[in-house]
Write a protein that binds this DNA or RNA. Structure first.
Lengths: 185, 185
DNA sequence: AGCATCATGTAACTTGTTACATGATTGT
DNA sequence: ACAATCATGTAACAAGTTACATGATGCT
């Protein structure tokens, strides 16, 4: 599903960042959608620099640690990102191990399965809290006078997260109900 | 995200299948969630056979084409599947390119973005139709007297698909509204 | 004539995950 | 004393994608 490349550019289009920053932000800005390892970030940044999509803005050097390399997006990088954003793309599949586990629940003791669902429901409740918090925070920071405020594009993404987690939690509740019904037979 | 292995076993736990069958069913039974290539299915089946999780039930040979190898799950395979199903696992991230594109919409002409969203909304409506059809079909086939009918575990999975696609479509509608508002400035 | 279906499989390539390595500094 | 943070990166492995190869048959 073509590319962390564009995930990196999406962040850099908003502000200059180092590879390290990107790694952190992935798990809090676009995310908790995405996740990347340093192994993907650093080589990709180098590649993009070679292709002229990003360039080094500055390098902070503290002798005792690796230089902090701040990258900024170039004109070409913005264009590439805009091109990708407008490029038609297929729909992604939901691919969630737990759905597969639910598919197997007929094989399993309903009591144990209930425990299992309750566990992951809890996880999704935690995620819901994170997303809700994020929506609230972004909404407070949004400048309603600026029609091109990037935050206006961030809110729907976080909002999707909220909706998705609510859906998941509700779905878990229904599952739990069905296991209770089944175990009382 | 550990394993087609269990996806294959999940199907084989319900009925014996060939690698070819599995490839087809992935995109219509568990799915449209999953997708696999033959490159993953055939080697994995061989590996699992070597480990005793599945075994050959029969081999149909038509001289003019490769033998059709029907696999069935073994006791050990069922146990492994049950073990995995009850194993606690982390929550998955939603990872959808279009969310990232939406995150970039502040960079882009709202009119063009609207077209883009409408396109993918259409795709999700198609998927919704598929899932709804599936839920209806499964519900009709469900045996309500048998508390261990595997179909009872399939319905929630398809139902998740329905809910998810509805959520996605509604989200698209909200996005479209926001682009219309923005372009009329 | 040409393409889709059935049915196995391999090969080449791209992505993603986990773990490691360095090494001073700051907080517990 | 010990872990976490900052900051770069490499290496080994696991998983996923795309394309290819075989080759008769049946459909348009």
């Amino acid at each position: 599903m073509s590319s962390i490349r564009y995930a990196l550019l999406s962040l850099l289009a908003r502000e200059p960042l180092s590879g390290y920053d990107i790694k952190l932000h992935m798990n809090g800005r676009i995310g908790p959608f995405w996740k990347v390892g340093s192994n993907q970030v650093y080589p990709e940044l180098s590649k993009m620099e070679a292709e002229g999509l990003v360039k080094l803005q500055s390098v902070e050097q503290h002798t005792y640690r690796p230089a902090r390399k701040l990258y900024e997006i170039t004109e070409a990088g913005r264009d590439a990102l805009i091109g990708w954003t407008l490029e038609p793309g297929g729909v992604e599949n939901v691919r969630d191990d737990f759905l597969l586990k639910a598919y197997n629940s007929w094989l399993v003791d309903p009591e144990q399965m209930r425990t299992q669902v309750e566990e992951i429901k809890k996880r999704h409740e935690e995620k819901l809290a994170v997303y809700s918090e994020k929506v609230a925070e972004l909404t407070a920071r949004l400048d309603p006078d600026n029609p091109d405020d990037p935050i206006a594009s961030t809110i729907p993404v976080a909002e999707f997260g909220v909706q998705y987690e609510r859906l998941y939690i509700e779905w878990c509740d229904n599952l739990i109900k069905s296991f209770i019904a089944r175990s009382s037979k």
